[in-house]
């Protein structure tokens, strides 16, 4: 049941990959996220080189986000204008990120960069999510009054130039913060192979204070554009996209995502967030662990010379 992955140059058990795609798809449908952050560590664990794992799953994120955006478009829950500004930033971020990744890979430091990025970003986001959602659950159990949340945007958002109207998001703000957010997500998508939803969604909600109904749809739209550009760039510059691997993953992934989305209605939002936060944190720690554990072989081949 093994299949040879031509770019990764390893053989893997393909039913296992379909199952993996379906599981990650289910999780992503359940939580409304791309699931890229979960996929790369498992692929690396299966023995696929980190640079190939990161580049190949970007196209898996494209597929799952596409079916997501279609669903949200039908509900008119995508702010195309906001998404467009963020996607423009995402494209620039992707260019910069892929070049950076290429340089790191040739330097033999790609694995390190991937591990460090996972540890840093997933660790931070996971901790925040867990802290915030556990607090909410505790308050509900104790029956405390929910404290009134600060509803104001940070003041600096008003001081910046290039103001634009975003009617669907209910915003009249400078285009620079969403653009910058896009650039950041673009760099992450190149280095971590993730869509960046786990950073975009909280930032759009709590910093930009967009209308909550359009946040997920808009971030998915920006994620499609960014990860599509990242995939093409990774293929063009690094030749690390494995079409066989990504196809197998997305076959399972799109099916899993649909079932995950159906299940998500059964749980409370803060419980889902607590579980997601825990998963994010654990993945971050697991990926970061390799930096501190003595490797089984100190030497490794570096790519670059054929």
């Amino acid at each position: 049941m093994d299949i040879y992955l031509p770019i990764a140059e390893v053989s893997v058990n393909w039913p296992l990959l379909v199952l993996l795609g379906a599981t990650v798809g289910f999780v992503s449908g359940l939580f409304g996220i791309g699931g890229g952050f979960l996929m790369a560590p498992i692929l690396i664990f299966l023995g696929i080189p980190p640079s190939v794992a990161v580049a190949s799953q970007a196209s898996h994120v494209v597929a799952s986000s596409t079916s997501g955006v279609i669903a949200y478009t039908n509900q008119k829950a995508v702010d195309w204008r906001m998404g467009g500004v963020m996607a423009a930033g995402g494209v620039i971020g992707a260019f910069a990120g892929v070049e950076l990744f290429r340089y790191l890979r040739l330097l033999g430091q790609a694995d390190l960069a991937v591990a460090l990025a996972y540890l840093l970003f997933l660790g931070a986001i996971g901790t925040l999510m867990l802290y915030e959602s556990l607090g909410e659950i505790l308050r509900r159990v104790r029956g405390d009054v929910v404290p009134h949340k600060e509803r104001r945007r940070p003041l600096w958002l008003y001081g910046l130039p290039l103001k634009m109207r975003f009617p669907r998001s209910g915003l009249y703000i400078s285009a620079i913060p969403p653009f910058g957010l896009g650039v950041f997500a673009g760099v992450l998508s190149a280095i971590m192979g993730v869509g960046g939803g786990f950073i975009l969604v909280p930032a759009m909600l709590y910093v930009l204070r967009m209308r909550a109904g359009v946040v997920v749809g808009t971030s998915l739209f920006q994620i499609i554009i960014t990860t599509a550009v990242t995939t093409i760039l990774q293929a063009g510059r690094n030749q690390t996209v494995d079409i066989v691997l990504s196809t197998i993953l997305l076959l399972g992934g799109v099916v899993g995502a649909q079932y995950g989305a159906r299940w998500s209605g059964r749980f409370r939002a803060e419980e889902l967030r607590a579980v997601l936060g825990l998963i994010v944190l654990l993945v971050g720690i697991q990926m970061g662990l390799e930096l501190f554990v003595r490797p089984s072989d100190l030497f490794a081949f570096a790519p670059g010379v054929q």
Binding site: S59, V62, S65, R237
Partner: peptide, 28 residues
């Protein structure tokens, strides 16, 4: 596939993306 990915990397990348988008669309 290996040859294709190394000889015409940009076309290959575009194909990967189109395939992914098509799969996502078909699934929905």
């Amino acid at each position: 596939i290996f040859e294709f990915a190394h000889r015409r990397p940009w076309t290959y990348g575009l194909l990967c993306v189109l395939l992914a988008m098509f799969t996502g669309w078909a699934a929905s």
